[in-house]
């Protein structure tokens, strides 16, 4: 931390700060002037219909999309200058964890440790233990040598969350983690998140359907057409989320964000 202490103290407690953020995808404003502050330790659900800008917001927060206007800060540092990626765990929106070549559960999870791994260095004992721990948390320890392509969709999602947890992040960002996941896996998923939350991890989660995760949420944000239309306690939001869901085809721009 090189900045003066007074300036830092205000921002240090914030895991995510989004200020007047607009994001342009192919000439269309998908986010318009979003302001959002997430304190460390909060568990936030980002809700909204397809095309409302949820995934765009998440991708801009982790630096995958550039901001057209405004800025995103992670732990007080603007994202383009942010280097402490070890503090962030990301679960992208995926249907599968498999690539063109077979890879085992263990191999995919170990790729989550790269932010702190030196080039040309072998995997140390502490990291191996971290991988075992992450596998245990998502209940996949006995599948570590299986190819990810041979697992069910829910099991593959559990591998992706283990990959995000293995670096012991302080901020966990999940994009539709439970889409297409069977209920048994959703429960294991929720238990894994609960364990992290108990240790003070900040969680930001995009979801259509929170399922067993619902009880963990302290705050909901609802996006509609690129703007935040609700920000507050979770249960009041549930009904309005459904109103937006049934809003019809004009909001259905899922192809923009997928």
């Amino acid at each position: 931390m090189t900045a003066p202490k007074n300036a830092e103290s205000d921002t240090a407690a914030k895991a995510v700060q989004v200020t007047d953020l607009s994001v342009d995808l192919g000439g269309r404003l998908v986010l318009r002037g979003v302001d959002l502050q997430i304190r460390q330790g909060e568990v936030v659900a980002v809700l909204g219909a397809n095309g409302s800008g949820k995934s765009t917001l998440i991708k801009t927060v982790v630096g995958l999309l550039p901001a057209a206007r405004g800025e995103v800060r992670l732990f007080g540092t603007p994202v383009p200058r942010f280097r402490a990626w070890k503090r962030v765990g990301y679960v992208p929106q995926r249907i599968t964890a498999a690539g063109g070549v077979p890879a085992t559960v263990y191999e995919v999870v170990s790729s989550g440790l790269l932010s702190s791994r030196r080039l040309f260095a072998p995997l140390g004992a502490a990291r191996k233990a971290a991988i075992e721990d992450a596998l245990r948390v998502v209940d996949m320890a006995d599948r570590r040598k299986d190819a990810v392509a041979e697992l069910s969709g829910g099991q593959q999602q559990r591998v992706l969350i283990a990959r995000a947890l293995v670096s012991d992040p302080e901020l966990l960002i999940l994009d539709e983690p439970t889409a297409g996941v069977d209920l048994a896996s959703q429960q294991i998923f929720a238990d894994a998140i609960r364990e992290r939350v108990a240790r003070g991890t900040t969680v930001v989660m995009v979801s259509h359907d929170l399922g067993p995760m619902d009880a963990l949420i302290d705050r909901s944000i609802i996006l509609r057409r690129g703007r935040i239309v609700y920000d507050g306690p979770p249960h009041a939001s549930q009904t309005s989320a459904h109103v937006h869901h049934s809003h019809g085809a004009s909001d259905d721009l899922g192809w923009l964000t997928s």
Binding site: K59, V62, L64, Y90, G99, G100, S111, L114, S115, L123
Partner: peptide
């Protein structure tokens, strides 16, 4: 061989690799 873990991560999931700071 030496950069195997990094190259594997990039080829497996480019977006994730970017968020790990690679």
């Amino acid at each position: 061989i030496g950069l195997g873990p990094q190259l594997f991560a990039v080829c497996q999931d480019e977006e994730f690799a970017r968020v790990t700071g690679l």
